[in-house]
């Protein structure tokens, strides 16, 4: 759920907005420098549209309930963490302003919780596992899935923490934490399976698109073959003599 206006008190909203803004500033710098250069605007824009579309995709969880993909870990593994943060931030911005989904005063909170936290935790887990495990492309989907699995409950926990500090209703911490974790572990499993399978499907077709599996392109020597150019049966007379 997108955090609406009035969910957290004003200081918490302001503080999360500051954190989100600095995360975006850092990502702007890093995305341009390390990930996408002048392709940033069109590619990140299309990836943002993709994230928006996948967030509309509901997956059935259990007993008639369903969750939707958050896409933080998926985006991070696919396009790199900085670009992913930009894409998700823009998704929340557009959702708030064009769809009234998520409050405008809670924009920073939403970006922080569902953008920055899911990306950093998801990508962090992915990278740490990649560092300790053998470097094989076949492991990338599994690691991406594990990153996604952890990222969803992590965002839920940060939400609980924020609620404890700046919530507008006095709710027992334990009750809230266990309820949120319970639901989000389930959603996290769905997110994990879908993330892993989606990354695997992409690796099969365009391995070069998966940031988390990036490798130097192999330089193969070019083959040049000259086949005789057929001139069709009847003599042709193109303008200007051809070689």
């Amino acid at each position: 759920m997108h955090v609406p206006d009035g969910f957290f008190d004003a200081p918490t909203s302001a503080a999360t907005a500051v954190v989100a803004a600095s995360a975006i500033g850092t990502s702007l710098y890093l995305a341009r420098r390390r990930e996408l250069d002048d392709r940033t605007a069109p590619l990140a824009g299309l990836v943002a549209a993709f994230v928006f579309a996948t967030q509309m995709l509901n997956f059935p969880v259990a007993g008639g309930t369903s969750g939707h993909l958050m896409g933080g870990a998926l985006a991070a593994v696919l396009v790199g963490p900085a670009t992913a943060i930009l894409c998700l931030s823009v998704v929340f911005l557009v959702q708030a302003l064009l769809f009234a989904d998520g409050g405008i005063t809670a924009l920073g909170t939403n970006i922080l919780l569902m953008g920055v936290v899911t990306v950093l935790v998801g990508y962090g887990v992915f990278r740490v596992l990649q560092a300790v495990l053998p470097k094989r492309a076949s492991l990338v989907p599994l690691l991406a899935g594990l990153g996604a699995l952890v990222s969803v409950p992590a965002a839920a926990l940060v939400f609980v923490g924020l609620f404890e500090v700046g919530g507008t209703v006095d709710v027992p911490l334990g009750t809230l934490a266990s309820a949120m974790l319970g639901v989000h572990v389930l959603i996290g499993i769905g997110e994990a399976v879908i993330t892993a399978a989606a990354v695997a499907a992409i690796l099969k077709v365009r391995p070069d698109l998966v940031h988390g599996a990036r490798r130097l392109p192999t330089a193969t020597p070019l083959v040049v073959r000259t086949s005789p150019v057929a001139t069709p049966a009847a003599p042709a007379a193109p303008t200007g003599g051809e070689a």
């Binding site: 150019v229 001139t231 069709p232 003599p235 007379a237 193109p238």
Partner: peptide, 9 residues
Amino acid sequence: IVADGSTRD
């Protein structure tokens, strides 16, 4: 390029 000529031909 395997052929080059007038389109009709």
